[in-house]
Design a protein around this nucleic acid. Sequence first.
RNA 1: UCCCCAGUAGCUCAGUCGGCAGAGCAAGUGGCUGUUAACCACUGGGUCCGCGGUUCAAGUCCGUGCUGGGGAGCCA
Length: 460
Amino acid sequence: MKRIKIKEILRSENEKKQVLVKGWIRTKRESKDFSFLEVNDGSCLKNIQIIADTALSNYSEIEKITTGSAVSISGKLVESIGGGQKWEIKAETIDIISFAPETFPLQKKRHTDEYLRTIAHLRPRTNKYSAVFRIRSELSYAVHKFFHDQDFQYVHTPILTSSDCEGAGELFRVTTLDLNNLPKLDKKIDFRKDFFGKEANLTVSGQLSAEMFALAFGDVYTFGPTFRAENSNTARHVAEFWMIEPEMAFCDLNQNIVLAETLLQYLVNHVLDNCDEDLTLFANFVDKQLRSTLLSIVSSGFIKLPYTDAIEQLMKAKISFEFPVEFGKDLQSEHERYLTEEVFKKPVVIYNYPKNIKPFYMRLNDDNKTVAAMDVLVPRIGEIIGGSQREERLDVLEKRMEENNLNKEDYRWYLDSRRFGSVPHSGFGLGFERLIMLMTGITNIRDVIPFPRTPKNIEF
RNA sequence: UCCCCAGUAGCUCAGUCGGCAGAGCAAGUGGCUGUUAACCACUGGGUCCGCGGUUCAAGUCCGUGCUGGGGAGCCA
């Protein structure tokens, strides 16, 4: 007989003569004549209640079942006599696949997130984390569905890259050289002896590669892991994270902003429509305002504010900031949060930033002072999307690279795209983990990725 | 990397002024019950994060290191 998932069982309309369920024991309650077992198989938040009668041939074994043990149960699906659940299984056979000894670290009580982080390999067996990772999976699907429905091509951009792309951010070095015996040439490391014959790193963004494909396919997106070796110790940063990067040809900054808004609203709606049970857990136990926050995102358009207007808004703010507001400087976290949480209470798109605080590839505006950049800020998290219209004019781009002391030789292929059929194009990066934080109300990014990598931590 | 806070039983935490190491949950045993984080009784369970110092005496005070958390910067 084929096993049936608990999610499907709980949707049943009628009793069933025989079902087969496999999963892990969450809790056991013993009665005089029988025991109640609660089994979870990860297919949904809820457990199925099992009635184990003392008449079962291996009842003495069943009595010893502990939380965390793996079991296989066949029996009759019947309406529950007790309150609290509609269905239960009157077990005919209970096979214990394996016992979890009493050292099993998860108990049937609330654990702190900090503790669960130390047992990240077991935390998906808790209610909260199974809900997080089901939503993560559902959101991944929704991302692909959104772009597929809009005829975007999915591009796999490289994870291994040659050095210095973007020239910003700390990179993870990739090498096969023997670090205890490095080949030297004139007292410097001889990278000609390394695997690729030159320095190599893990990617910090798929953007530059995605641009090349946008200039062939029109609309493309990437969705993959990204690596930053920044020594960041915050609830919003990890060294390995996932990013969604659409890139569109024949697209200006305004159209870019529209896509960012449409995408975020689509994803929120998808979760509201498809993850209600898991969402309810977060709305009840993690963030009481979760539903109103999500509804504020889908119910109306985002606020769009040029950088200069944002600065003006902040200048006239009645509260005092730790860091002064000043034109030409990037917004601090406190400024971003003030705008999105206090002033507008919904997502805010800030665009046209001063060129000196943004990377070389962003398109220079006619004022010669600002670039066509945009950041989407959301309550609690701050920046969730960063993007821009790209500089498509070869001469302007080369000048910007010179100003930033970048070696044009390293970017020959990138500059080629501006030599041969260059067109206006735009794109952005959406932080996938920050998106999940937004959807769940979880405030630490380490709790929305299965095995977080942070400075001094690469366990599991 | 900088600032602040914390580390006590398997887990969550209390521990007063420096004076015998505590509770709840979990575990074990027994009881009761269509139970719902079941309930009741009993039992076992400690490198008080490590190292050094002050003191008759340190979980408690001081120094230092490690780990975790919160905030900042960098950004998604």
